[in-house]
Design a protein around this nucleic acid. Structure first.
Lengths: 144, 144
DNA sequence: CTACACTCTGTATCATACTACAGGGTCAAC
DNA sequence: GTTGACCCTGTAGTATGATACAGAGTGTAG
């Protein structure tokens, strides 16, 4: 344990971070190279020393990836903040755009969910005979 | 126009399908090679002849990709149907799994959306000073 | 009847996001 | 003090999802 800003901080090795986040050990270095996580402190022998914050960040990256965000987009999500280069207004505008992107994804997922629900329900009766029931179910959701 | 099952069907060329769906012309062939769309009919000279169904299917593929589904997963979504190889029960189970996957995505997106909302709201006051406000906002949503 | 846009096949190349070495150093246990 | 599990760097290779190109045929407008 080491202290930082009056809080005790457990130092993690790269292997430990990999294990805690479920990514490969090389992926941690890869994300560092790509600027998705900052360069961690180093021990006297050159070993990387990670805090728990790195774990949070990598978990977020993994989650966002599953939601269809590219590493580039994730990077821009993670760097959303008020800094001297940007006014508060800029940040709000940027954030609003991200919220709208996220909303669009939610809407599409809900459509797919409803289509899947219809597909499951269709099993009860004579069953779907269509070539591609999920597309048909989606079409009913959004005619034309 | 040509008729098929008593319905008039506009035949589309590969280029037209590409234009209508917004994908590259080579991508249409790529999806055919990968089995994501079936092999279309051919004209006497060997030209592919697509129906509007192909357009729907490719639009679905594009949408699902934006939601973080791989082509393999999309393929399995598109092939969800009652066929002689599977019982109705099997289809229901498969579909239920997909619905639960979709639900998880929706939940995660909503968390990110709320975090983004907090970030935008934080601008009003003294503004966020954190290294990574979005992660902090997410943490408040789901402590630990 | 030819110019030009389009299609065909096969294959090669590309971007993204990892994943796997090779060749070396570190460190704790025995 | 050496064994084994870890870490370091640099670089090469892989999987996925396209995207480009070469060399050929097609189709139609003028």
């Amino acid at each position: 344990m080491r202290t930082f800003k009056n809080q005790s901080v457990k130092i993690l090795s790269r292997g430990e971070v990999a294990k805690l986040t479920g990514v490969g050990i090389e992926t941690v270095r890869f994300y560092e190279q790509k600027g998705l996580i900052e360069e961690p402190e180093r021990s006297s022998s050159g070993y990387r020393e990670y805090s728990q914050d790195f774990v949070k960040r990598i978990r977020f990256i993994q989650q966002a990836k599953k939601l269809g965000f590219s590493l580039k987009e994730i990077s821009s999500l993670l760097s959303l903040r008020v800094d001297p280069q940007k006014t508060c207004k800029d940040v709000k505008r940027l954030t609003q755009t991200k919220i709208s992107d996220v909303d669009k994804k939610i809407v599409q997922l809900k459509k797919i969910k409803r289509a899947l629900g219809k597909l499951a329900a269709a099993c009860r009766g004579k069953g779907p005979t269509s070539e591609c029931p999920i597309l048909e179910a989606l079409d009913l959701e959004k005619p034309q």
